[in-house]
């Protein structure tokens, strides 16, 4: 009897803007300029930065430029859908940026081959040519040989 069921397209949309605060705001400004930044904490440089150290609640310190390379600490393989950062199947991954603590969540383009993905693999940020101060200014990370 399911053939008797009506169906219709249905879209849920909330077009929010959020304020980002000074630390993340500077981090995003760095992305616009094509440079990753971390923030100093007692444990080391945290990237992606936060206003407060998640372990102690202490306010974090100054922002410092960091590398645009890192190591995949965790990943999951997904099919590419409209609006995704990579046009073929890719991985969402946690990436420990070199010289920092914490992890940056971003896409990894492995050329559509999940067999190239591994924890511990080396990746490098692929920057967009036109950047606006958003996380998508990094198109994705790509495999660094």
């Amino acid at each position: 009897m399911t053939a008797d069921s009506l169906s219709a397209p249905y879209t849920v949309e909330f077009p929010f803007e959020r304020t980002v605060g000074p630390k993340i705001g500077t981090f995003l400004g760095g992305l616009r300029d094509g440079q990753l930044y971390g923030v100093r904490t007692a444990r080391g440089v945290l990237c992606a930065p936060l206003e407060f150290e998640p372990e102690t609640g202490a306010e974090t310190g100054e922002l410092v430029p960091v590398a645009n390379t890192g190591t995949v600490t965790s990943w999951t393989w997904v099919r590419s859908r409209p609006g995704d950062p990579v046009p073929h199947d890719f991985a969402w991954a946690l990436i420990a940026i070199d010289g920092t603590i914490g992890a940056l969540f971003h896409a990894v383009d492995a050329g559509g081959d999940s067999g190239r993905m591994a924890t511990g693999m080396r990746v490098r940020a692929r920057w967009r040519a036109e950047r606006v101060g958003q996380l998508s200014d990094i198109e994705c990370f790509e495999v660094a040989s």
Partner: peptide, 25 residues
Amino acid sequence: TEVLPEPVTTMPNPFRMDYTYVAGT
């Protein structure tokens, strides 16, 4: 003394999901 980037103040945070609503018999 690092010259830091000009901070961004807001970011778009759109939330959009496309469904097919199936009413059922």
